[in-house]
Nucleic acid binder design. Structure first.
Lengths: 158, 158
DNA sequence: CATATTAAGTATCATAAAGAAACCTACATT
DNA sequence: AATGTAGGTTTCTTTATGATACTTAATATG
């Protein structure tokens, strides 16, 4: 039983290739061979990860042909809803790990035409969320460990 | 050499415990023993991960006492800037993995006092970023594989 | 004075996960 | 008849993780 939502997410997505498979899915990759060639992952591990992502309902295994039967993997609503996680990862990687002016990729917003730097904000006041301004409180399912950690955290933040 | 910012980030943060160590750091944990007890990670792996996070400048190893000398681990600016990634993970985990009404933790915005659901928006137009409205284009450092994947992605998105 | 305890690790060995390469199945193509 | 294609599985080797014991330097306890 996980003790926090991050732990729960990592129980599904925490293994070595899971986020890269997801990233490829966002790029439009759907087929076993596509993932395998693009990622350079071993077939064994790929099939294990795909099975896990399917059983977690991040991907759906869909037959796209009979005789012989062939399947592909498509994002579910749950899977698509991981897009914000990938976006924040992309922003951080571009910001801190790319040579300046040498980013690997550029995100463009089709709505406004601008180059995006994804920003995480409060859904109420639309202010960017910083560590100092966000307080984590144990919820109804918090474990004892989490309650203790959060109590310490809020005690120390000054 | 990584081919995309997500890959680059995962080169640092991709191992089993790294994100949980980071989450604990956001909760205010700083000491070896604190991480070890709270996470239930083996000391060997913890010391390997901390070393890696320090060498990636996510954490700084700071002496907090002499005789005997003791060190603690503090978030750097780089590390603090991973907060948005953790926030989007928390939101996703709370949304899809918690029993309804039984979330593990609640985020409160000290600025507006409201319960937060972190939202990822465009830094120009402030609209939420959805898969359909974001276009990824290869940047200056994109690998051939990435260029091909992105071309396919944009070709297929309709 | 001897023994515990604390904090931050290392060392050693057993188990689990990942990677490489070959093989399998069902059909289509040359 | 042989080759190719797509989506895997099997087997074996290498690497990573986990459990337990030990180390070091100082303080606290009986």
């Amino acid at each position: 039983m996980p003790g926090c939502p991050v732990e729960a997410l990592l129980g599904i997505m925490g293994e070595r290739w899971s986020f890269l498979i997801l990233r490829d899915a966002f790029y439009g990759v759907r087929r076993f061979d596509g993932f395998q060639q693009h990622l350079g992952i071993s077939k064994k591990v790929l099939s294990q990860r795909l099975r896990k992502l399917v059983s977690a309902e991040i991907l759906r295994r869909v037959q796209y042909q009979e005789h012989p039967s062939r399947y592909e993997y498509r994002l579910t609503a749950r899977g698509r809803d991981l897009f914000p996680v990938i976006l924040t990862m992309m922003r951080w990687g571009n910001r801190w790990l790319a040579e300046p002016g040498q980013e690997w990729l550029e995100l463009v917003h089709k709505s406004c035409g601008e180059k995006i730097e994804p920003k995480v904000v409060c859904n109420h006041c639309n202010e960017p969320l910083t560590l100092a301004r966000v307080q984590a409180l144990p919820g109804p399912s918090a474990t004892k460990g989490a309650v203790r950690a959060l109590r310490n955290a809020t005690a120390k933040s000054k």
